[in-house]
């Protein structure tokens, strides 16, 4: 039986490793993606994974100062995804 505080540390390390691996897999899709559709999707996934990593960093250090960074990442990620998609669809972002 693992001690509970050890369990908590293990879960944190596992989450960091899993998110880093997820980030790497998304980056592979970003590089090999056959079309621009897959590249936009891979970038969107990488932004969400980055938000997860920032939140994990906040948990690991026990601070709340990374909250604003995560919120700004969420907003800019959405706006950039829509801007990319709109640029591909219409050839322009703001008409």
């Amino acid at each position: 039986m693992i001690a509970p505080d050890r369990l908590y540390d293990l879960a944190l390390v596992f989450a960091f490793a899993a998110l880093a691996l997820a980030q790497l897999l998304a980056m592979i899709r970003l590089v090999i993606g056959p079309d621009v559709t897959d590249r936009i999707l891979a970038l969107d996934t990488m932004v969400v994974d980055a938000i997860g990593l920032i939140v994990l960093l906040g948990i690991a250090q026990g601070t709340q100062i990374y909250f604003e960074a995560a919120l700004i990442f969420a907003m800019l990620g959405f706006v950039s995804t829509v801007a990319y998609a709109r640029f591909i669809l219409r050839g322009d972002i703001i008409e």
Binding site: A11, L25, A42
Partner: peptide, 26 residues
């Protein structure tokens, strides 16, 4: 101890979901 177990469970579930999403993407 109970709260730490709950946090650990949420962390593992969330990380697994994100990993599964990226594996599916690839």
């Amino acid at each position: 101890v109970l709260i730490e177990i709950v946090i650990a469970a949420a962390l593992v579930v969330g990380a697994l979901f994100m990993l599964v999403g990226s594996i599916g993407l690839l």
